[in-house]
Design a protein around this nucleic acid. Structure first.
Lengths: 172, 172
DNA sequence: GGGTACATGTAATCAGTTACATGATTTA
DNA sequence: TAAATCATGTAACTGATTACATGTACCC
């Protein structure tokens, strides 16, 4: 209900996750949800999962409940206002596409050894791809359609990058 | 010569550009060089091009010369130490691959409308692709091999993203 | 000679990262 | 019960972004 703190991607990740479960979660729960889902293609530091919900609660997007005893853990849940915010965000088209902010490509641009970079980046992407595919094999059926779609995009992306680096190597 | 300020990708972009030209450049010159080259796939704010060289000069990676009269513009050039740093960086393999930090995919994950997102992202990527291809057509021959390689990667990346979004749309 | 676009810079803010710290739970 | 690992959190820093501000040159 305060003046709105600006909402960043991190904000929407927190809001989005809490919207999905429509229940309470601690920062640690959020961390768990992140791993193996959004976290695959959009890193969020665990400390951000403590700071961000606090900001969001201050803005009225989340409600906060704190344990009385013991650890005094914080539980967050999304409010109507929060849900409205995610909804609006979901509907609004992004103004930007993904930037290829690839450290490997940066080195390539500035004269790094193409063959070495290609070999190295390929193996990293292959590992990532394997992870995605394992994930899909394991819980494709239990996964909401939206998330599955995003996972497919992740898989396609890794495949594309592998192909791209193969070309770099081939072109010598 | 100081305790080293940590070198970030931005640092290496500045160092890399100054290494390429092996001469002096003002922050504004750097901005110009960036546009239409690295800037295409790795955004750097113009104000960073004022702050970063200063840091780098403090660390001994750049030399700084300031105009006596008029605007008192700052001219930077890379030092031997700077050249050594880029060199080492070039040689060292990145520990990370590109993350697909795509706002569109994020929305997809959290339930954004696939068809709408696909249509929208596609047109953005197509614009980017067209820009790259124009660039290549225009100065492929005058461009150092390393930069051309990076440009090719950029082109391939845009094509891949277009294909990926086409699949999203097709899968409905 | 007034406007507009290019050029140049600084200051404040802030999100994200790093580092530090400690509490609880399991396992050997 | 000691060690290790999982869980939970805070503090400090800092790179990057935003916003502001002004100077210079060209054009009408």
């Amino acid at each position: 209900m305060q003046a709105d703190p600006r909402l960043t991607p991190t904000s929407y990740i927190v809001l989005g996750l809490l919207d999905l479960i429509s229940g309470e979660a601690t920062p640690y729960d959020l961390k768990q949800m992140l791993a193996g889902s959004v976290g695959n293609f959009w890193t969020v530091q665990h400390s951000a999962l403590y700071a961000e919900p606090e900001r969001l609660a201050a803005g009225g997007y989340l409600s906060e409940r704190r344990e009385e005893s013991g650890r005094r853990r914080r539980f967050y849940a999304i409010t109507d206002e929060g849900r409205a915010a995610v909804d609006a965000w979901r509907r609004q088209m992004p103004t930007e596409t993904a930037q290829l902010r690839d450290p490997g490509v940066l080195k390539l641009f500035f004269g790094g050894d193409p063959a070495a970079l290609a070999a190295h980046q390929t193996s990293l992407h292959e590992a990532k791809l394997a992870g995605y595919e394992a994930l899909r094999a394991q819980l494709a059926d239990r996964m909401p359609a939206a998330q599955l779609r995003a996972l497919e995009v992740g898989i396609a992306f890794e495949r594309a990058m592998i192909a791209i680096w193969a070309d770099v190597r081939a072109a010598g």
